[in-house]
């Protein structure tokens, strides 16, 4: 079970969180202006890297806030967490 450092509450058991998939997939400014393919890419296409991945988590059984995390999908190490609206931290 991961120990996830919620940026509002501190480290908590993974069981308190919900996973929210890839971060920084913004709702398009003007969906009507998109082609079907562009819209489908927004809806259905997500990265699936082996390595560091920016992803969304919700502390659903705690403060109920959404935040972002940089997690290595191969090792489960969480390199950074940051609040919604904050820029993605640069990690080496």
């Amino acid at each position: 079970m991961l120990l996830i450092p919620c940026p509002w509450c501190g480290p908590r058991d993974e069981a308190e969180f919900h996973y929210g998939g890839q971060a920084h997939v913004a709702y398009p400014q003007d969906p009507a202006a998109l082609s079907d393919e562009q819209w489908a890419r927004y809806l259905f296409f997500r990265d699936n890297p082996k390595g560091v991945f920016a992803e969304r988590w919700s502390h659903s059984a705690g403060c109920r806030r959404w935040f972002n995390a940089l997690r290595d999908t191969a090792t489960n190490e969480i390199h950074a967490v940051y609040r919604v609206g904050e820029p993605k931290p640069v990690t080496s």
Partner: peptide, 13 residues
């Protein structure tokens, strides 16, 4: 409720 919170917090803060 989760759906509302998600949109409010992540897209329309």
């Amino acid at each position: 409720l989760d759906w509302m919170e998600e949109w409010l917090q992540t897209e329309w803060p």
